[in-house]
Structures are given as C-alpha cells and as structure tokens.
C-alpha cells in the first residue's frame, strides 16, 4: 500500500476536486478569512515553514482567483505538496482557521520510525521522512 500524507482539515477524505476546493474557499471568504497558498517538499508534520506562493490574498470576493493561483503553483511545482490556509484575524492575532492540502506529488514517500536507545534501556522515538534524504527540489519525481 502506498503512503498518503494526511495533514490539516479533510485529511482523511479523498483529495478535493477543484469544485470542492472552490466551495471551501468560498466558505472562508464569506467569513472574511485571508487565503494563503504554500508549498513544500518536506512533509514532516512538525515542519511549519512551508514556502509561500505569492502574498496572502486579502479582499477577495470570489474563489476563482484562488483557484487561478493554485493552478499556477501546481504548474510551477508539480511534485510538491501544496496547501491552502485561511487566516482568521478576528482574534487580533494570526490564527489558522482552515488549512487543507490541495496538491500532492504523484509518488509520495513515507516516514520511518527511528528508535534511539538511551540510558536505562529507554527508547526515544522520532520520525524521519524518506523524502528529506535527498536535497531540496529533488525529493519527489514522477
């Protein structure tokens, strides 16, 4: 069974179609949330530093603008993970209200568990992404 990355909202659903993405974006816009598109090829769950695709989009009315940018990002990074985040600024601080993956590499690489034996036969566990064995930009291929 091949690996499938699950992160953010809707992660256990099948991948959203463009129409479904548009509806989710519309939901966010209706609540006044700013939309941001990010991409990465380091899918570790604790990697919060994804690269930004352009600037966050404020003052949008219609999801087609977001879909346009997603499409452009997919063309530029076909073998990266791409996600959409919606910021809710109503709390006075940047708060992600909704975040979901909109694009993933064709062949996803999984994680393996690293066990480290420390004092008193204790075991420490950590995750390692196979993808990060290779340098940035060469991690996923068709």
């Amino acid at each position: 069974m091949s690996f499938r990355l699950t992160q953010g909202t809707f992660s256990y659903l099948p991948d959203l179609t463009d129409e479904e993405i548009a509806k989710q974006v519309q939901y966010a816009l209706d609540r006044g949330w700013a939309i941001n598109i990010e991409f990465t090829d380091d899918p570790h769950p604790r990697n919060v530093y994804w690269d930004m695709w352009g600037l966050p989009m404020f003052d949008l009315q219609d999801p087609s603008a977001v879909l346009y940018e997603i499409q452009k990002c997919r063309e530029a990074y076909p073998n990266h993970y791409i996600r959409v985040s919606a910021y809710d600024r109503s709390y006075g601080r940047q708060t992600i209200a909704l975040q979901f993956i909109v694009h993933r590499p064709k062949h996803e690489l999984g994680f393996h568990v690293i066990r480290q034996e420390v004092r008193d036969r204790q075991i420490r566990y950590t995750l390692h992404s196979y993808a990060t064995d290779r340098p940035k930009g060469e991690r996923y291929v068709d």
Partner: peptide, 14 residues
C-alpha cells in the same frame, strides 16, 4: 505584474 494581478484577483466574480 503582481500589482495588476492582485487587483484582477480582487475583481474576480465582479
């Protein structure tokens, strides 16, 4: 280009 695109994106749907 980014400036024009930003405006166009804001206007989409209208």
């Amino acid at each position: 280009a980014p400036k024009t695109k930003e405006v166009l994106k804001r206007a989409m749907g209208g």
